[in-house]
C-alpha cells in the first residue's frame, strides 16, 4: 500500500504546489507506515524529478510522454488510475487547482473511490478516514468521512508546510498504456501571460477593487507586486469593467486563493469576494470607509486613501 501524489508540472518544472503535496502525503504516510509515490506526466528533467525525493517521495513514476503536455481529462485520469493500481495506492492526492479539479473526479470513479476536494489539513483520523474541508464558500468547515477502500482528495493550496527532508527518490520510467484514442482534446490556441507570478501559486497577492477608480491607476499596484514578487488580483466589478483581465478576478465566482498575505486596496469586502480570499493567512485592507466589511476580515487595516497609502507601502518595502 502506498500514497500516490499527482505532481503537475508547468512547462517541465515543478512548483511549490507540487512540493507541498509531497510533504503533505509524506506526513500521512508516516502515520500509516506507508510510502509516497509521485506520478509525473509529460517531459520533466531528472533534476526536477529528483527534487520530489527531498520532500518525501520514495519513488517517482515518470511518464515521459509529450502527449501529456496539455491536459486531456480522460487520458490523464486513466494514467493516474493506472499508476494507483500498480502501486496499490490507498490514497490518491491532487492539488485543488484547475487540473486537480478536472482529473480527481474521473480518477475517483476509475478507482471506485470516494472524493473530498479542498481538504485543508492532515486527516483527523486515518481509520475511519476523516478530513476537514471548507464548505459554504469558506463560511464553514466540515469534517468528512470517506468510506470507500481507496480515498481520493484534493488539497487546498497553502494548507501544509513544505518540509525538506533531505531524502532522495528512485525514478522509474512508467508506461500507463494509454492509446492515442484516449486523447480527445486538441489545442487550437494557448494564450498565457508568461513571466508573471501565477495567482494560484503566489505567496503574496496584491489586489485592487472599484476604489482604485480606473484602469490607469494600476501602476502603483503593479510596482508593489513586482517588489514583493506577488501575484495581482482584482474584485469582480474591476474585471467586469474591463480594467483588468478576467483571469485576475478573485472571489466566490473567480479564482479562489489562499496566499500567506493578501492586500485589498479599495475593496469593500462583499461576502462573495471574501469567499475566495478569506483563507489567506494575513489580510491587509486599505479603504477610506471605516464601516467597510473588509475590516472584519482583515488583520491589519488603514482607514485611508489608496492613492496616499500605496506609494508609502512601496517606499517602505524598498527600505526593507
Amino acid at each position: 500500500m502506498s500514497i500516490l501524489v499527482y505532481t503537475e508540472n508547468w512547462d517541465g518544472k515543478f512548483k511549490n504546489l507540487s512540493f507541498e503535496l509531497v510533504s503533505y502525503a509524506h506526513a500521512i504516510a508516516k502515520e500509516m507506515n506507508s510510502t509516497v509515490t509521485a506520478v509525473s506526466l509529460g517531459k520533466v528533467s531528472d533534476d526536477d524529478l529528483m527534487k520530489l525525493g527531498k520532500y518525501g517521495a520514495t519513488k517517482v513514476l515518470n511518464v515521459d510522454d509529450e502527449r501529456y503536455n496539455s491536459i486531456d481529462n480522460r487520458a490523464t485520469a486513466k494514467a493516474i488510475a493506472s499508476a494507483a493500481k500498480s502501486e496499490d495506492s490507498s490514497i490518491v492526492i491532487f492539488a485543488n487547482n484547475n487540473v486537480g479539479k478536472a482529473i480527481a473526479p474521473r480518477t475517483a470513479i476509475k478507482l471506485d473511490a470516494g472524493l473530498v476536494s479542498g481538504v485543508t489539513a492532515l486527516p483527523l483520523s486515518i481509520n475511519p478516514f476523516v478530513v476537514k474541508k471548507k464548505v459554504f464558500t469558506s463560511k464553514a468547515i466540515a469534517n468528512v468521512q470517506i468510506n470507500s477502500d481507496i480515498k481520493v482528495i484534493t488539497l487546498a493550496q497553502n494548507s501544509y508546510d513544505i518540509i525538506d527532508l533531505g531524502q532522495s527518490a528512485t525514478i522509474e520510467t512508467y508506461d500507463p498504456g494509454i492509446v492515442d484514442t484516449d486523447f480527445s482534446t486538441s489545442v487550437i490556441e494557448t494564450n498565457k501571460v508568461s513571466g508573471k507570478v501565477l495567482l494560484s501559486d503566489a505567496e503574496i497577492v496584491v489586489s485592487g477593487g472599484r476604489g482604485m477608480k480606473s484602469a490607469d491607476n494600476w501602476g502603483g499596484l503593479e510596482e508593489l507586486a513586482d517588489l514583493l514578487g506577488a501575484g495581482l488580483a482584482c474584485s469582480r466589478p474591476v474585471s467586469d469593467e474591463g480594467w483588468r483581465s478576467h483571469s485576475e478576478h478573485v472571489g466566490q465566482t473567480g479564482v479562489m486563493i489562499a496566499p500567506n498575505l493578501y492586500f485589498a486596496f479599495g475593496i469593500s469586502g462583499a461576502i462573495q469576494h471574501l469567499g475566495g480570499v478569506s483563507s489567506s493567512k494575513v489580510i491587509v485592507a486599505v479603504n477610506k470607509d471605516p464601516e467597510a466589511p473588509i475590516f472584519e476580515a482583515a488583520d491589519y487595516g488603514i482607514v485611508g486613501d489608496v492613492n496616499v497609502v500605496i506609494p508609502e507601502f512601496i517606499e517602505a518595502v524598498k527600505a526593507l
Partner: peptide, 22 residues
C-alpha cells in the same frame, strides 16, 4: 454514499483588525 459529513464547524472568530493611521 462514498462520503459523509459527520460534523460542521464555524470558522474560529478572527482577532480584531489592527488599525494604523494613514
Amino acid at each position: 454514499d462514498k462520503t459523509q459529513i459527520i460534523k460542521f464547524e464555524l470558522p474560529p472568530p478572527k482577532a480584531a483588525c489592527k488599525l494604523i493611521d494613514e
